[in-house]
Amino acid sequence: MTAHTADITPPEGVQVSFDISSAGARFGAQFLDILITFGGLLAFFFVMIWLQVFDWALLGTLFFLLIFLIRVPYYIFAELVWNGRTLGKKIAKIRVISADGRRLTPHQIVARNLMKEVEVFMPLTTLFAGEFSSTWTGWALAIWMIAILAVPLFNKRRQRLGDMLAGTLVVDQPKLVLMPDLAAQNVDAATGFVFDAGQLEVYGRYELQVLEEILRAEPKSPEAKEKVDHVARTIARKIGYRQQLLSKDTWVFLSDFYRQQREFLESRHLFGDTRENKFHGDAETDQVPRKSG
């Protein structure tokens, strides 16, 4: 399934984008939550009965209270305390955020979880208990339940009805990985590949960032080296780099090219000439003429 993103504008006014959680992660988190709450309840009662600390009447009272508390109230409480995360969501590394860029309010948490009763618990118990016969009402009921369960699959932001009601989204917890700066890393290694402006005119941002991804992993195996070789020779041909390119130099060639291409594109960008990809020359005619050539 393709990854969707949601752009949130915090009060600071700089848009931040979150990845909308996949249906699998949502399902997994829900499954884990059910497992944890019901499993915990069962374990608790086994221990209680085994220890025989309470009499049956009190156990009964506790049982009915807890069976209620582990449904909607558990989710409300967990999401309030852990800022939009239940135990299952913590494990699945997803969380609830407010779609309006403000903080998550108690109202939103209560609203989205009250709907859980019809959106999750009712369909699940009905479908698993097989409480529908083969009559047409039974089938209609089953189809309706499946339709409710499938609501998040059929909208772009994967909101279930409770999310729509509360104005919330479920997103992936952002992962923090800072890769080294390729343009800084290789500055000393310059062995003298120098490109002129004409050669740097060819590519745009998209190609630069593809090259960045290639440069993130230094080739180890012969096949990988072959590929890098191929990339370097293709670039050399496209930009019209005339000198002889030895196989041992291709990595350095790409690094140097990356740095100079980035510097070039960034400065063009600062002058208002943003080049999204290698077709920037073709698109020029359709757009408003620019002052900086």
Partner: peptide, 22 residues
């Protein structure tokens, strides 16, 4: 135009936003 940097900053800001606006 450093994609890795953008990704990192985006994630950092997102994480910080969720902590600051809890």
């Amino acid at each position: 135009m450093d994609k890795a940097l953008m990704k990192y900053l985006e994630a950092l800001c997102a994480r910080a936003y969720l902590v600051v606006y809890a």
